[in-house]
Structures are given as structure tokens and as C-alpha cells.
Design a protein around this nucleic acid. Structure first.
Lengths: 337, 337
DNA sequence: TTGTACGCGTTATCAA
DNA sequence: TTGATAACGCGTACAA
């Protein structure tokens, strides 16, 4: 790798001049020199050493994309189509803005913070922070942060949350199910936190508005531990006999649930109706086609990245929170009864 | 961020000593000093600045993971479940080995090389290099490289290819289809290059061994352009009427094809048999369950990362090429006739 | 218009 | 056992 110093040496110029030409600070450089330097740079294919630049400028041009995992989580994060689509959008935006993306997977906020400060990361995109995660980050990290699908955002200027109106999404679809004549509607999830809690609340509101009583019993609790999932889904198939419909908190769960129903000869939607949430790529490949709530995964990623990059440029975010709107997608898995 | 210099100042020591303690070069440091420094480091939560370290050591601890795209490709790369699973494995290995992962998506080898040298990346994992891509990389990049699913590997010491015996995989499944009584078997793909070519050759060999003539007509060519896919699949459904089975070059294509068949009321496997390749997570969620060829996507990623990391440690790779074995998975989409 | 000199944080060499 | 000092490559204030 050729360095500025070497170039300056060969051209009998100073490093300053070369550096100035590289950065277009050409007001004070003679045209001939500019030309000479430019030509030479091209010839040798000069590439700046970013470590040296970062060291000198105290920046990194790196945006950290942090996925906080929990132990024993069913799907490896990157394989989750929703995550993958979001990251696709994020990656493109970051790249086009001249930044670099570094992905961190970790169960530990401390580990994440260490990596972030080791690399002197310029900005952060955080997924699914829970509890006091956000606060712990904000205490140690004082640069722009964009959270995705995070409920509790500390009231910090450099924090922005990108979310979805989850409650409204589930409200819409459950309302639709009720309109189709369903009154016994289960809610399937592996937890009742954060985003899933919101979705549960929308479900509850729709039922209550229709004068249908909601009981804890209607919660179809799926295990989140890899080795227990199959078993818990088996049990839920039994439980489903008392229901005409089940709303699943995600497309993935809906697909998994339908598999078990199929394997037992229970037909969707003839015997039971099922709905999902997300409308991800793989749900779209399913047949019968899944009735679900659509959200723009890639768009969410793009928005997160753009918001962060804008903050990096010194712009104040317009608001601490951006909430996107979900959209009901009616397909074939919810039957009129 | 506290620096070594500051620490040395506060402790009335030299930076050398502090640095030595940090790196466990404690043969020549007194126990008391070690203790004192260690304690202080803990207290202040010292985190090294990796830019400075990289600059001094002329390394980066970064492993570049390069996905070369082609314009208009149907699936965004990271959303491809096979890619996602592989990256999951790669990421974990890289992280556990104390390296950092940087993902590059690009259509241009030049752009990739620029980024790689900008960051002074220590090693590279390349996916699907085509034609002279590999050679162009090897000309400019002289550190360890592991390719995945690449056919032409230049005879370079620092290049290793991780592949799958694709031809054998398709040979096995097509042979199975023949054993099930099928004789008119189509081959569906969107191209006939690299890995897909290998899979085609295995298909061909199985048919030829069974004395079945193979014609160009049996190639079900699907468009790879986003906006033309639907249409081309429609046409292939018509074409399928003359066949009892279609072997698809990937699970994804098999799923897409089956969707179109389903939407036209053509049943799998009753009316036509379908097989895939990869056995990815989403294919496993499909019903009827897909008969396919299994390969360990995550394992492939892990192997690629481990091989590279071993080379980074100075070990010579045992061989220029590691070829994994695929495995036939019989499920429900191929019917005995 | 061009050049000198220094600082960024770390590691390494060699002297004390 | 410890400490000064140079070096890595770049950007920049300031001097010429």
C-alpha cells in the first residue's frame, strides 16, 4: 500500500499538498500540481489507510448494527426474514452514505459497549433493547443512536426510536376476524413483552370492543426454547380445538403452527382460521396464502439508517420517535363463518 | 476514552509498562506493578483504541465477508435463507476468534478491493466468484482468502475453496425420482453457471444412467429478473403438463414454483412431483414437506471461517479445496408412480 | 503556493 | 524491572 508520504517523495512535493489534492482543497494549489498529483494517484491506485485517518480525526466512519440476542432463542437472528430484510435496507443506506457497517450480535450490553468504544463507532442502530438496556447504553455512549422496535427510550437528545403501531396492526386484523364471524380467537406468542405486548393489547381491544370477553386462557403460550417448541406446539393444537381462529404474533409462528395443524390433518382455513403479523417474504410463499399484517421491513431499516446518518451530519432529529403504520393484508387463511 | 498514556501518567509509570501488563508480557514486570496496573485498568474500564493498534501493527482484525451481487437479482442477498444461515455461522466463528466481521455487498470487484485495502482487512471470505473474479482478487490482494461455492480457484497458496458436491446431490435426488417411476423430469433454474451447472450435470447423469434421453427442452428456464419471474413461472406451469416431475435447483425456486402450481389448482405431489435443493429453514416449514437435498449451510459458513482463521494464524491449508457431501432428504413432494 | 512539524493511541526497540 | 523514543499513515495549523 502506497502512502501519502511516498507519493509526496516521488513527486517532490510535500504531504500537505498531496493530502490537499486528495481532499479537493484545491483553492491554494496550482493547476499543474493538481493535475500531476491526480494523475499519479490514479496510476498507483492510492487508497487511504482508514486507521490512520480515523486516528487523526477521531472518527471511524463505522455504524454499528447491534442485535441483542437472548439465550436459546429459536431462530438465529440473521436468519429471521424480518431482520434480514431490515438489514438489507440498512446496509445499502450505510454504504451509499460512505459509511461502513459492522454487525454485532451479543447477549451482553457490556460486550457491545466494549466493541463500540474499541472501534470508536460513529453511530449505533439498536434492535429490541429491553428494560434498562437503552439507559445503560446512553450512559456510556454519547453519540447518535437509533433504536428499532424499542419501547422505553430514555429522554435523550441523541436517541431516536423507529417503531410500528403494533397495537393498531393487531387491532385491525383481529377486528377483521371478528367481522368474519369469529368469537373464540386465541393469541399465540412466546412472550408478552415489548412489541408482543403491544400486539396483545391491540388484540384485546378489538375483542373488548366487540363485547367479547378476553381471558388469560386465550393466550397460546409457545415455548421459546429450541428443544421445547415442537412439544408446546403439539399442545397448542389440542387447545385450538376450542377455538375457531388463532392470531399469531408473527408470520413465523403462524407458519410453524400451521405446520403442526397440517401434520395432524387439521385444515386451514376450513377447520380453523389463522393469521400472522409482518408479511415477510416466506409467509408470502406459503399456501394457503396467509392473512396477515404488513409492515415494511426493508423500509424500516432504510428509515433507521437515514435517520442516523442525518444525525451524524449534525441535524437534530425532528422527533424522538417515528411510528410507522401497519396495513391489513387479507388473503386465504381466515374463513368467514 | 482513557488512553494508555493517561493511565501511565496517573500511575507514574511508562506507557511501555502499562502496555506490557495489558498484553500479559509480565515476565519482566514486578508483581506489585502488575497488580497496581491491573486494578487501575479495571477501575477506569480501559478499552484499547483499535485504530491505533492496527496502525502500529499493520493489521486490522477485520475479516471481510464479500457477497457479490448481480444487477436485478431476485432476492436481496441477505434475505436468502441459505446466505443468512451461512453468515450466522461465519459471524459466530469470527467473533469467538477475536476478529471482527465486515460485510461487503457489491457488484464490482474493484469496489470490493478498494474497501478491503482501505481497511487493511486481514482475510477474506468470498461468495460465488465468477469467471475471472478470483484471479482479479488474487492479483491485488495477497492475504488469505476462502471462497465459498466458487468453481475456478486460481492455483494460489493463500486461496482455499469450500464447496459442495453439487453434482452428486442432484444425481442422488434425480436417481430417487427415477426410482419412484418418473421418466419425464424437468430441471428448473434461472441459469446454468457455476453451482447450478454442477447440479444440472448431476441431473443429466442420473437420467442418462437410467437410459432416459435428456434434451435441452427439459430445462425449465426461469427468469432471474424480478419483474419477469411471475410470468416465466406461469409459462413453466404450462410446460409442466408434459412432465411428471420437476427438480428445482434450489428450495426457493421449488417453493415459488409450487405456489404457482397451487394457485392453478395443480396439486403436489398428486398431479406433479417437485424436488428442491438446500433444505433450508423455510423449505422445512412448507407443507407438503419438500423432498430435497440437504446441505449444512451454517456448517459451511463455520468451516469457511475456521479455515480462514487457521490460515490467519499462519497454518498452511491442508488442501486448496474442501468439498462437503450433500444428503438426500425424502419427504412428501415426490410421489411413487 | 508549498512545506514543516506535530498529534492521534498504540506497540516495539533498545537503553538505563 | 522500567522508561524514552521512534514508528505506523494521515490531517492540519502554522510557517515560509
Amino acid at each position: 500500500m502506497i502512502t501519502i508520504k511516498e507519493i509526496a517523495g516521488q513527486l517532490k512535493l510535500s504531504t500537505t499538498t498531496v493530502s490537499n489534492v486528495i481532499h479537493g482543497k484545491t483553492k491554494e494549489v496550482s493547476p499543474e500540481t493538481i493535475e500531476k498529483v491526480r494523475k499519479f494517484l490514479d496510476e498507483v491506485g492510492y487508497v487511504p489507510n482508514i486507521n490512520a485517518r480515523n486516528l487523526a480525526q477521531n472518527e471511524s466512519k463505522i455504524i454499528g448494527v447491534v442485535l441483542k440476542t437472548t439465550p436459546g432463542r429459536y431462530l438465529e437472528l440473521l436468519s429471521d426474514p424480518f431482520v434480514a430484510e431490515m438489514i438489507t435496507g440498512i446496509e445499502r443506506e450505510i454504504r451509499e452514505a460512505g459509511y461502513y457497517m459492522m454487525i454485532y450480535l451479543s447477549e451482553s450490553i457490556e460486550e457491545i459497549l466494549t466493541r463500540v468504544s474499541t472501534w470508536n463507532v460513529d453511530g449505533l442502530i439498536l434492535f429490541w433493547m429491553l428494560d434498562d438496556d437503552g439507559i445503560r447504553v446512553s450512559e456510556k455512549y454519547h453519540k447518535p443512536v437509533v433504536c428499532v422496535d424499542t419501547m422505553v427510550v430514555p429522554d435523550m437528545k441523541h436517541f431516536v426510536n423507529i417503531g410500528l403501531d403494533d397495537a393498531d396492526g393487531s387491532y385491525q386484523i383481529v377486528k377483521y376476524m371478528i367481522e368474519c364471524g369469529h368469537r373464540k380467537i386465541g393469541f399465540l406468542s412466546d412472550n408478552k413483552m415489548a412489541v408482543d405486548l403491544q400486539r396483545y393489547q391491540g388484540y384485546k381491544r378489538a375483542l373488548e370492543e366487540a363485547g367479547i370477553e378476553v381471558s388469560e386462557d386465550d393466550f397460546f403460550l409457545m415455548s421459546s426454547q429450541k428443544n421445547e417448541i415442537e412439544e408446546s406446539l403439539e399442545e397448542l393444537c389440542d387447545k385450538a380445538k376450542d377455538y375457531t381462529a388463532v392470531f399469531c404474533v408473527s408470520d413465523l409462528f403462524a407458519l410453524m403452527f400451521m405446520d403442526h395443524l397440517y401434520d395432524r390433518g387439521i385444515r386451514v382455513p376450513e377447520d380453523i382460521s389463522v393469521a400472522g403479523f409482518d408479511d415477510n417474504r416466506y409467509a408470502r410463499l406459503h399456501r394457503p396464502a396467509l392473512t396477515t399484517v404488513h409492515q415494511e421491513a426493508e423500509g424500516k431499516g432504510v428509515l433507521a439508517a437515514r435517520t442516523l446518518i442525518s444525525m451524524l451530519k449534525g441535524n437534530e432529529p425532528e422527533s424522538n420517535e417515528i411510528i410507522l403504520k401497519p396495513e391489513l393484508v387479507i388473503r386465504d387463511t381466515v374463513k368467514k363463518i
